[in-house]
């Protein structure tokens, strides 16, 4: 089943005389249970693509559908509700609220809906057990490590059972050990709970955890790799090779 479908996505920044086309007629499809990576050099439009797909930013033209909901046809109010109920977010700088404890942060997406408290407690326990952060629930973000923060952020993204999780450079601020731990967790959750994940990254190691990787260049999809039955090492090598072809002039990773 196709969860996300984008047709002829175009995004233009700037005004009349000084415009810049960041996304040029991109077509994209994501199926349920996929773990999609988006790679590309700086300025290729990866984060912009993620933002418009996640309804945080608006497209200049084109159509985006998630679970058969046309994002362009929704008003701000409805879009917010949609985002809250169907999407999850993980960002490079964690985006936790400093004034809330870990548990309070994770509860946020459930706080508006009519989820009964006992159900919320159960969901929080389940996801925090899975991510191994159930012993820091009453700590504030300033009291925990970067890896723990990012796992908290992941727990918050996953707790509401979203249709799709968007992750923007989730390992960007982490050391390699924490990064690997987080990615293994995401991979496990993706496989076990059939959660669809879309992740922007410029780290080939991170991308090698995905089931499919898209390469962006100058606002267009340049190529696409499927993991298939390959193991992670082989897939990593393949990603590196594609990057080499892609770069030519100064790839930034």
């Amino acid at each position: 089943m196709v969860i996300l479908r984008g047709r002829k996505i175009k995004k233009v920044f700037g005004k009349k005389s000084n415009t810049q086309e960041v996304l040029k007629d991109i077509d994209i499809e994501v199926r349920e249970g996929e773990f999609v990576g988006i790679m590309g050099p700086s300025g290729s439009g990866k984060t912009t693509l993620l933002n418009v797909l996640a309804s945080i930013d608006k497209v200049t033209s084109g159509i985006i559908e998630i679970n058969n909901n046309n994002l362009q046809k929704m008003k701000e109010q409805k879009l917010s509700k949609f985002r809250r109920e169907q999407l999850g977010f993980i960002f490079q700088d964690y985006n936790l609220l400093d004034t809330l404890t870990v548990k309070e942060n994770i509860y946020l997406p459930l706080s508006v809906g009519k989820t009964p408290k006992t159900v919320s407690e159960k969901k929080i326990k389940e996801i925090t057990d899975l991510l191994g952060i159930n012993d820091i629930l009453n700590k504030y973000p300033s009291e925990i490590s970067g890896g723990q923060k990012q796992r908290t952020s992941a727990a918050r993204a996953l707790v509401g059972n979203p249709s799709i999780v968007f992750a923007d450079e989730p390992t960007g601020a982490l050391d390699s050990k924490s990064a690997t731990a987080l990615l293994s967790n995401l991979e496990k959750i993706n496989k076990e709970k059939k959660v669809t994940i879309m992740m922007v990254t410029h780290d080939s190691v991170a991308a090698s955890f995905c089931s499919r990787v898209l390469f962006l260049k100058d606002g267009q999809i340049y190529s696409e790799l499927y993991k298939g039955d390959k193991d992670r090492k082989q897939f990593f090598q393949e990603i590196m090779n594609t990057q080499g072809v892609l770069s030519g002039d100064g790839y930034d990773a």
Partner: peptide, 15 residues
Amino acid sequence: GTYNILRKMGFTTNE
């Protein structure tokens, strides 16, 4: 920053 996070997560301006 807080409002940015909450808006991204799908809370409306009115909420």
